[in-house]
């Protein structure tokens, strides 16, 4: 009988403790990020989708179509076509860089192996599209301009400055 009463009282105390916690939180500021208006600031290392930014000094992308990234990709999401001159001799320049975002798993391996820092993972994270075909992108034709912190970080990468 005594145990019965004791159980009820201790049980009620634990319940009240829980209620005190929820009551306390009721007067705290919400932590919600009002998404479409406010957006989270991604870190410089954030891996959004793959882009091939235009190097402002060069006026073009830095890709030499060496195919190292193609070999490094675990999912075969990258296909590079090399530019050729009139005689059919290949030039160190990519004619097209086909990137299939549908199969990409954002592992960053292609970026890490690139000896020229030609490709980089952008800060974008709203990658959903309505059409499956639009997941396949030609990065050379896109002429992506990388700006902001990520852009600075990317430039510092191939200029051998201190990494952020």
């Amino acid at each position: 009988m005594l145990k019965y009463i004791k159980d009820i009282i201790t049980g009620a105390i634990t319940l009240l403790e829980g209620m005190a916690i929820t009551f306390k939180y009721m007067f705290q500021k919400p932590i919600t990020l009002q998404y479409p208006e406010q957006k989270a600031q991604m870190t410089t290392r954030f891996r959004g989708r793959l882009v091939m930014p235009v190097d402002e000094e060069k006026g073009d992308n830095r890709c030499t179509a060496c195919n190292i990234c193609v070999k490094a990709c675990p999912n075969y999401s990258i296909a590079v076509e090399r530019l050729t001159d009139e005689t059919g001799k290949p030039k160190p320049k990519a004619a097209s860089f086909t990137y299939n975002m549908g199969t990409c798993m954002f592992c960053n391996l292609c970026v890490e192996v690139c000896p020229f820092s030609a490709i980089v993972m952008s800060e974008e994270y709203e990658l959903a599209v309505y059409d499956r075909k639009s997941l396949i992108k030609d990065l050379v034709a896109e002429k992506y301009k990388l700006k902001g912190r990520k852009g600075k970080w990317w430039i510092s990468k191939f200029k051998d400055e201190e990494q952020v």
């Binding site: 991604m42 870190t43 290392r45 954030f46 891996r47 954002f106 592992c107 960053n108 993972m121």
Partner: peptide, 12 residues
Amino acid sequence: FELITGNRLTHN
């Protein structure tokens, strides 16, 4: 994790 690896769930 995002700071170190760049991703939030599948960090690689």
